[in-house]
């Protein structure tokens, strides 16, 4: 058992929900609302010094009533020891958690991926966009258990949408703004971009 677990319990008391061990890894479940405070303490306290964020991910279990978990895998270079910190997100509440980008810049893309795959929103993230799926992806969050393996849309619907995709949608409004060419775009395209219509995505016919 990692001694940091005891230190956390001494310092944060009831905000540490439980501590378990699995396959030699120490796992600390913490209160969702105090996650950033606890991770900041783990990072900045000299005798903890978990300065390296290894990974951010999320887990959804097969039991539908079980909450989702966000998982932070930490590592302390000085002591060569790792710690896994988890927070549970009940499914009957909005899936929101504080972003760790202010602590670790490396959390940026990792949190975007969790958002993309699980639909968990990271409050305070500077650039929370889909990363692996395209921005107009309308089928949902692929790694959720209610997402079928082959996707929500039929193959023909997926092909239809791909063929009908608007080539303008390959650039974000922000990117077109860089070019200082936004004013020179055709008026209808400007209007669509300004309204956030990025490609013609129709509602699926007849459900999943």
């Amino acid at each position: 058992m990692n001694p940091s677990a005891d230190a956390l319990e001494r310092h944060f008391g009831s905000a540490i929900r439980r501590v378990t061990e699995s396959c030699g890894d120490t796992i600390v479940y913490v209160e969702l609302g105090r996650l950033r405070e606890i991770l900041a303490w783990l990072k900045d306290t000299p005798d903890q010094a978990y300065i390296y964020l290894v990974d951010v991910t999320a887990v959804e279990y097969r039991e539908p009533e079980r909450p989702l978990e966000v998982v932070y895998e930490l590592f302390a270079f000085s002591r060569k020891v790792g710690l896994r910190v988890k927070a549970e997100l009940p499914k009957d509440q909005p899936l929101e958690v504080d972003s760790m980008v202010p602590l670790w810049a490396g959390a940026n893309w990792l949190e975007r991926e969790v958002y993309d795959m699980f639909g968990i929103t990271f409050r305070g993230h500077p650039d929370l966009r889909r990363i692996l799926m395209w921005e107009t992806y309308a089928e949902g969050y692929p790694l959720r258990k209610d997402f079928p393996l082959r996707g929500r849309f039929s193959r023909s619907e997926q092909v239809r949408q791909a063929l009908n995709a608007n080539p303008e949608a390959h650039y974000s409004l922000e990117e077109l703004g860089i070019a200082e060419s936004y004013q020179e775009l055709p008026a209808d395209m400007r209007g669509r971009l300004a309204r956030g219509e990025r490609g013609q995505i129709a509602e699926p016919k007849g459900g999943a």
Binding site: T57, V59, R62, G106, N108, W109, L110, E113, L143
Partner: peptide, 15 residues
């Protein structure tokens, strides 16, 4: 597995 997560080094390095 319930979840198989890959910590992809190239993805994070590219960021």
């Amino acid at each position: 597995p319930v979840r198989w997560r890959v910590r992809p080094p190239a993805f994070i390095n590219l960021s």
